[in-house]
């Protein structure tokens, strides 16, 4: 095996931020995110023997994490929380606004945007997703145009 459990956990601790972000991007409730996080951990650990050290650990991790997010079954329905009254001030952090903008995208476009927002190059995104660099560019342009339209309609900062 390319790394033992201790080394694997060390690598994971370094990259856990991306796992949390993917879980937030693809799941709405804390319980669903926890399920997905654990499923990604399982898939990463079981796929480890297939990891080749010549590719970057982060590239391999993105591939497994996004694949899992795309195919993992959602066990629970999103919880509906009834508020006693509407909040007086809609306090929205940038990250919540960002997730709202990404929410209407389909699962594949979310994956492309996550990799783009992580600042990966088109070549790296192409390697992870399996589509051509050219196609990555075309699709990201379309997605960005859609998002910009929403930003213009609602304004990014409140």
């Amino acid at each position: 095996m390319i790394m033992d459990e201790r080394q694997f956990l060390q690598q994971l601790a370094e990259h856990e931020g991306i796992l949390f972000k993917i879980c937030r991007l693809y799941r709405d409730t804390p319980e669903d995110r926890e399920d997905l996080f654990q499923e990604i951990m399982y898939q990463l650990w079981k796929s480890l023997p297939g990891y080749e050290a010549r590719s970057k650990f982060s590239t391999w991790l993105y591939k497994i994490a996004l694949s899992t997010a795309l195919v993992h079954f959602r066990r629970r329905r999103p919880a509906i929380v009834y508020m006693p009254a509407l909040p007086e001030v809609p306090a929205q952090a940038d990250e919540n606004r960002l997730l709202e903008l990404l929410a209407p995208l389909d699962a594949a476009d979310k994956a492309l945007m996550a990799l783009y927002l992580e600042d990966l190059s088109y070549a790296e995104i192409a390697e992870i997703t399996g589509i051509t660099e050219n196609n990555v560019g075309v699709r990201l342009n379309r997605i960005r145009a859609r998002i910009k339209k929403h930003i213009n309609a609602s304004s990014w900062k409140n």
Binding site: E16, I18, F20, K21, E95, L98, L117, E118, I147
Partner: peptide
């Protein structure tokens, strides 16, 4: 760029 910054600064949590 603002979206990228928001993504990269997203409160990620910790296990």
């Amino acid at each position: 760029e603002e979206l990228k910054a928001a993504w990269q600064n997203m409160g990620a949590g910790h296990k």
